[in-house]
Design a protein around this nucleic acid. Sequence first.
DNA 1: CGATCTATCTATAACTC
DNA 2: TGAGTTATAGATAGATC
Lengths: 168, 168
Amino acid sequence: MMRSDEQVTRKRTRGRRKIPIEKIKCPSARQVTFSKRREGLFRKASELAVLCGAEFAIIAISGGSKVYSFGNPDAGTVINHYLNKRKMMRDYHSIVDEEAIGSYVRAVEALEGEKRKLAAERGGGGKGFEEWKEEKIQEMSLEEMEEYLKWLECLRTEIVEKIGEPSA
Amino acid sequence: MMRSDEQVTRKRTRGRRKIPIEKIKCPSARQVTFSKRREGLFRKASELAVLCGAEFAIIAISGGSKVYSFGNPDAGTVINHYLNKRKMMRDYHSIVDEEAIGSYVRAVEALEGEKRKLAAERGGGGKGFEEWKEEKIQEMSLEEMEEYLKWLECLRTEIVEKIGEPSA
DNA sequence: CGATCTATCTATAACTC
DNA sequence: TGAGTTATAGATAGATC
C-alpha cells in the first residue's frame, strides 16, 4: 500500500517497463523472469483448461537444463495422445484427403503386413509386450511403478472404451 | 479507431469483463475463448523461450479432441528431453514405436502407387472394414492392440471430419 | 466462422525490504 | 533471496461488422 506522504510527492516505482523480446543478459534477472513468467504461463494454461474443458501439457526446460512440466489432467497422458496422433497421422494425410474408406483399409492391411515382418525380423520370435513388461517391473522403483500403473490403467480404459473387454 | 461523433456520447464496448474460471457454457463463446487464449498462451511461451534461452513444448487438446502444439525449438525435441527423464515411457516408446514408423512409411508409399486402381476396382468398399477389423483384433497382442486402437480412433476422427458420419 | 476494436482486467518489470 | 508493492505494458471479453 502506498504511504500517504509519498502519494503526491513521488512514485514508489516506475511500474512495469517495456522490455525487448531478446535474451536477458543478466543471469539473475533472467532467472527471476523465468520463474515469474513460467508461473504465469502455467496458471494461464490451467485457466484455459477449465474454461474450455481442454487438456494441456507444458514442458519447460530452463537454460540450466532443469525440466518443469505442467499437465491437465497430467503431462504424460496428454503427451501420449499427442505422440500417437502425430506418429499415426503423419503418413496418411494425403490419403484421407483424397479418398475414403477403401484406401485406408488397404493402407492398414499393407501396414500390418510390414509391421509383422519387421517384428519377426527383429524380435527373434516373440518377446512380446508382456515379457518386456515383466522385465521392466523388476527394475522399477516404487515411484516409477506407481506412475507406470497409472499409465497402464489409462491405456486399458481407452482400449475397453473402444472395443470392450477382451473376449479371450 | 473511435469515431468522433461517438467519442463523447457513448462507449463502443464495455471493455474486458471479469469472468469466473469455470467451464464456459455457451459452445461458441467457449470456442472463441479457446482460440484467443491459446494464441496468447503460445505467444507467451514463445517470448519466454527467447527471453530466458529456454525450451518449451505445449500440447493442447480441445474439447473436440483436436490437437494443437507449440514448440521451441520444436515440440518433438522438447518432449523427447522430457521423456528421457521418464524411464518407463522411454522404454515403451523404443520398443513400440521406433520400428513401426518405418513400416508405416513404406506401407503407405507402396499403397500410393496402387490406391487409385484399387479404389476404382472396389468402388464402394468391398469386404468391409468392420469385418476385417474383427479378424485383426483376434490375433493381436496387447501391445499391438493398444497401438491399433489409438491409431484407429485418430483415423476415425479425421475421416468423420472429412466425410461425415457413416450413413449405415 | 474470423478479423477488429476498446475499455477494462491481468501480468509483470522494477523496486523495496 | 524471496516475498510484497506499484505503475505500466499487455491480454482479452464483449461488441461490431
